[in-house]
Each structure stands twice: as structure tokens, then as C-alpha cells.
Write a protein that binds this DNA or RNA. Structure first.
Lengths: 189, 189
DNA sequence: CTGAAAAATTGAACCAGTTTAAGAAATGAC
DNA sequence: GTCATTTCTTAAACTGGTTCAATTTTTCAG
């Protein structure tokens, strides 16, 4: 759990008391590969901090296929902000891609924590700022590059990551079919 | 400027003193059509609240074409969070699409305001949460629908808005060429 | 009102990526 | 180990959308 404290400390100052307060409010949890943190139509109730492991956020599209819109790995928060905040049924699944460890911050507990440690409000603002900027960047890549370019760009940027996940998930995330990814890869040899 | 105060009040409680503090910290500004709030390679220095009008955020892609990644209209904040926070040269232009009125919140002043009114930290967190959720939603639409479907979806959702902007801007935002938009529209008649 | 610039249309040739379907390879549970 | 399931590959036919180039329409400054 120290990973989470360390992460928060990179953004705001925490007293020893703050640390203890935070630790008393969050729950450690192990999650097995393929287990879900959230399913479609459920209302999301927590923010999840990934201590170790990998998760994917996806929805089932009109053709009945899984479309991955987000990956979360070590030291990232993951949740459905829309469902969490507006108390609406989620459109997304959040599922462990590998055996993982997380810290769970329940919605209600989060509000309490904010009143005890107002600095956390700032921490989450900064986290969201980064996430939003990354999301804009992602839209930029989708428009700017062909599928093949996106694949090479992504595998240069995260060479270890593409070893960790099945190819069909990468294809889905990058916005094309597994067949097309196969085609790209076979070209290279 | 009361529009901004009203907007903030929808998210957090403000005392009369808070209102005055905020009003003393932000600057009213009129912006003419085609004027820029931000240019590529400049470092972004403020958050801009659109009191009235319309802005587009775009970049110049590898082919030298303008690619719009975002529109901002009445009652939305617009900025380049990445450049603003990390003090890096921006990749984006932010330009007025029509004569507009804005409230400017300078970066340094913003930090002062946060220390005077800590609740604003929460306000911006909530704003960002919405913006991030909308951005995820946008990625979902890009993957889920064809260009034609995106066009009809968008014009059903914002029928007045498509009257306000040139078609080539809409095409760029939706991720296809003006020629293709022409084709879609001619089909309909 | 007028001319120049900006925006929208049209059509033909083209290409990036999908679909479908079948087989091969890798993984994992017992 | 071995069988079932999951993942990956290959190839042909197809389609959504682009590119290029020429033309028309709209907008707007003087």
C-alpha cells in the first residue's frame, strides 16, 4: 500500500497523520485474472488504484464485440467517472487482464477523506488533468496516424507492455481487427 | 461575468465574499472571430471560460492540414491542460470561431485563488471529471460508428451548433474530409 | 455593388482496413 | 501429458472513406 502513499506524495504534501488516515480508509484487495471490478449496467462505487497488475476497460459494441477503450497498469487509477459521479449504470466493464493487487477507495469514504484532507481534492484534480490530457492525445493519435503507424508508435513507447497482453486486446485498443494486426506483424519479418 | 459565478455555484457553495474574490481575480475579455487564445509552440498561461461564443482547438497535422480536436462553447472552460501544467510548448491552437466573450483565469492567479477558496479545487476537479468522461465517450463514438453515423448522431444532438460553424470544421472534428461530408449530405435529399 | 477569397460540391480512381471462413499454434486445467 | 479452449494467422472479396482536380456557391471587404 506504500505505493499509493508514495504516489500521492509526488503531488501533494502529506503529514504522518494524513498517511495513517488514508491507510485506514482504503482497502487492499487481490484480484484474479478475468475478475471484474465493474460490469455493464452496474453503478460504479469506487476509485481503484492499481498497486500491481493490469486492467482493461471495455464495452460491448453493437456487433457484440468487446471494444477496449482504456488500459490501467501499476500506479494508475481506474474507474468509470461518469457512473461514479452521476450514479448512472455504467456502459463499461473493468476486468483484470492478469492477477493484480489494488487499493479500493469507496465513494462514500472518499468524500469523508476529502473533508479530512482537503489536499486530496487537489491530488485528484491533478490526476484527472493528466488523464484528460492523455485522452486528448489519444484522440489526436487516432486521427493523425494509420492503424499501422499507431501500432509501431505504441510498441516503441511500451515495448514491455505489449508482451503482457494478448494481441487481440491490443488490436481492439488501437482500433482495428486482430486480423489486421496479424497482417502488420507478418509484413515486418 | 455573472455567468461564471452562476456556473461555479452549480458545483460548490460560494459566500458573497468568495464571489467578490473570484470577480477580482478574473479578467473579462472580448475576442474577435479568428483571434487566438493560444498558438502552437507557445506555453499556455491561463484557463479560459467562454461566457459567450465559440472556440476551436486544433493542431496542424503531418500533411499540413488543420485537425480539430475540440470545440468550446458558452459555459465551457477551454485550455491546453498539458502545456498549462507542465509548462511545455503547446501542440495546439485555440481560436475563436465567432466573436466571443471570455473570462481569463491566469495560472498564477489561479493558484492564489485556490489558497483563498479551497473549494475551487473541488470545482475544477468536478469540471475535469466531466471533461474526461466526455472525452472517453468521444473515443467510444469514434470506434463505434462510421463517419456517416457520427454525423447524424452529432447533428441530432446539437442541431443549432452545426448551423454556427463551417462544414469543413465539423468534418475535421468528426474525423473525415469535407468532401465526404458533402457526399453524406447530398445523399439525404 | 463587385471582385476576390473562402467554403461547398461532384465524380473517378484509389487505398486502408473489414469481413468471412478455415486452419494452425499456443495456453491452461485436470 | 493431453484435450479443450483461447489466441493467432492467412487469403480473397469487399467497403467506407480519401485523394485529386475541376466547378459552383457563398461570404465579405472596400
Amino acid at each position: 500500500m506504500q505505493r499509493l502513499i508514495a504516489h500521492i506524495s509526488k503531488f501533494i504534501e502529506l503529514t504522518e497523520e494524513d498517511r495513517e488516515t488514508i491507510l485506514s480508509c482504503i482497502q487492499y484487495q487481490e484480484v484474479k485474472k478475468k475478475d471484474y471490478l465493474l460490469r455493464q449496467d452496474a453503478i460504479c462505487n469506487a476509485n481503484y488504484f492499481i498497486l500491481k497488475g493490469c486492467f482493461r476497460q471495455y464495452y460491448i459494441n453493437e456487433k457484440g464485440l468487446e471494444q477496449i477503450i482504456h488500459f490501467g497498469i501499476d500506479n494508475w487509477w481506474i474507474t468509470d467517472y461518469d457512473s461514479l459521479e452521476r450514479r448512472t449504470p455504467s456502459e463499461y466493464y473493468i476486468q483484470a487482464v492478469e492477477n493484480s493487487e489494488i487499493a479500493v477507495l469507496d465513494k462514500r469514504v472518499k468524500e469523508e477523506l476529502f473533508s479530512k484532507i482537503p489536499g486530496l481534492e487537489r491530488y485528484f484534480r491533478l490526476i484527472l488533468q493528466r488523464a484528460y490530457a492523455a485522452s486528448m492525445q489519444r484522440i489526436k493519435y487516432i486521427y493523425e496516424f494509420t492503424g499501422e503507424e499507431r501500432y509501431y508508435h505504441f510498441s516503441n513507447l511500451f515495448p514491455e507492455f505489449i508482451q503482457r497482453i494478448p494481441q487481440y486486446m491490443l488490436a481492439s485498443y488501437l482500433g482495428f481487427t486482430p486480423e489486421f494486426l496479424s497482417k502488420i506483424r507478418s509484413k515486418k519479418i
